[in-house]
Every structure is written in C-alpha cells, then in structure tokens.
C-alpha cells in the first residue's frame, strides 16, 4: 500500500501541494488528472523523493517517511527510490547505453547484481515490453514509443512496489502513445501498482481503476475511475472531464 498523508510542498512562495492525502492499494492503478500546474507531477515526484515535501507523511509498504522540512537521510531516500519506479514524460533514457544497458543499470550499479543475472533479468523485462529484439539498440535508434517502453522496463528493473508514470504518453504521437498504453494496460492486468499523472483520457480510462482530480494543489474528487469519468459529483470535475473528452472524442462516453 502507498499512503500519502497531508503532503505539503511549495516552490518558494508558490504552494504546489496543499495537504494532499491519497491511498493507493497494492495492485491497483490510480490516475491523477488535473490541469497543468495542478500539482500532479509534483505529487508523483514526492513519492520517490525527487521532491522532498515540507510536511506530511509517506507510507510505502513497511517504510514510513515523515517530512519535517529537512531532507530524509540518504539511506531512506535510496530505499524509497528502489521501491518506486519512475517513468518520465520525455523518457530520459541514458543515451550512452543500449536499451539493455539502460535496464541493467540499476541492477548493476545500485543492487550490485552480477552481470549475467542482471542481463537475464533485463532481457526478461525487455521481452515484457515487447522489445527483446531491440536489446542492443541505442536510444537514438528507437522510436519515441519504443524509448518509453524501454524506460518502463528500466523503471521496473528493481521490482518496485509502485510504478510512477509522469505523463507517459504526452510526448508521443497518438499512434506511438497507443503502444505505451498497451504496455501499461498489460502491466495493470498483471497486478502492477501504478500511479499515472496524465492528460490522456484514453490512457486513464483503459488502465486505471481509481482516479483523483487535482486542482491548485488539492484533491477535488477521487474515487473509482469509471465513476469519476462518467458521473463526476463535483462541477469542477465535470468541466475538466469534458475538456479532456473534447481532446479525445469517443473515449469513455458518458
């Protein structure tokens, strides 16, 4: 289980998260939706401590991190990061390593696995995202969709408790986004716990069971994704969903 309680985060005078609480059950997928600047990316980045909240609490399995305004110690940060996988909007593959090398990196460097064991595990993950045949390709030789799939495999390498996806499809053409949606859907079916910040209603509707709408650093509404998308209780949610639907007609009709 991942539980965020009363998370607060500001950048200088700007309060980005204002007491956000959210619980994600093991094996479930939660979509974080909301307008740009609403704090969804920041919330994800707080879960793997790329951002350190000023206040609140993060529970990640057996790990509990209480935020007091000071950075947690290095060992805590390392443990949290190994239990979380991050998929970035613009992939951020290591350009000087092959697809396989990217996936092996955390196993070799952080977990100190022997080379052959890391290679076997990485090949397994590349196979899972349908790219075993491109294992020796450089990132520059892969399409955007393929790069993002390698990035997903890389994020899964250390067997994290939760996969955090920050706008995983928004840098991609619709066609290439589809292959990423398919991979994430497959992972969801296999019981991978995920938190996905997205504008992509197709992604949210096909992958997530739960959804939460963020606006101005607060959760406006959360609940089962189907209900939130089709029958929102709040007017603000209704308005936001209809703007998303205007972008992606025909998805999850009301």
């Amino acid at each position: 289980m991942i539980r965020l309680s009363k998370i607060e985060k500001s950048f200088g005078p700007l309060a980005v998260l204002r007491g956000v609480s959210l619980t994600v059950a093991e094996g479930s997928v939660t979509a974080l939706i909301g307008p740009s600047g609403s704090g969804k990316s920041t919330l994800l980045r707080c879960v793997n401590l790329l951002e350190i909240p000023e206040a609140g609490e993060l529970v990640l399995g057996e790990e509990t991190v209480r935020f007091t305004g000071r950075a947690p110690d290095r060992e805590t940060i390392r443990r949290v990061r190994l239990q979380t996988g991050m998929v970035f909007q613009n992939f951020q593959l290591f350009p000087h390593r092959t697809a396989l090398g990217n996936v092996m990196e955390s196993l070799l460097v952080v977990l100190k696995w022997p080379e052959d064991k890391a290679r076997a595990r990485a090949m397994e993950l590349l196979d899972k995202v349908g790219l075993a045949h491109r294992a020796d390709a450089w990132p520059a030789q892969l399409s955007g969709g393929q790069q993002q799939r390698v990035a997903i495999a890389r994020a899964l390498a250390s067997s994290p408790r939760v996969l955090l996806c920050d706008e995983p499809t928004s840098a991609l053409d619709p066609e290439l986004a589809l292959e990423v949606v398919e991979v994430l859907t497959q992972l969801a079916r296999e019981g991978t716990t995920m938190m996905i910040a997205t504008h992509d209603l197709r992604l949210a509707a096909s992958v997530a069971q739960e959804a939460a709408l963020l606006e101005a650093g607060e959760i406006v509404e959360s609940g089962p994704a189907r209900e939130l998308f089709t029958n929102p209780r709040q007017g603000r949610t209704r308005r936001f969903i209809s703007t998303l639907r205007a972008e992606a007609p025909g998805i999850a009709p009301a």
Binding site: L50, R81, G85, Q92, A155
Partner: peptide
C-alpha cells in the same frame, strides 16, 4: 532529467 533518471533508479 538525466540526473533525475539516475536518482529515480536508486
């Protein structure tokens, strides 16, 4: 982003 990707894998 390259630093962040590195941090994110531990």
């Amino acid at each position: 982003g390259q630093w962040e990707a590195s941090y994110s894998i531990g």
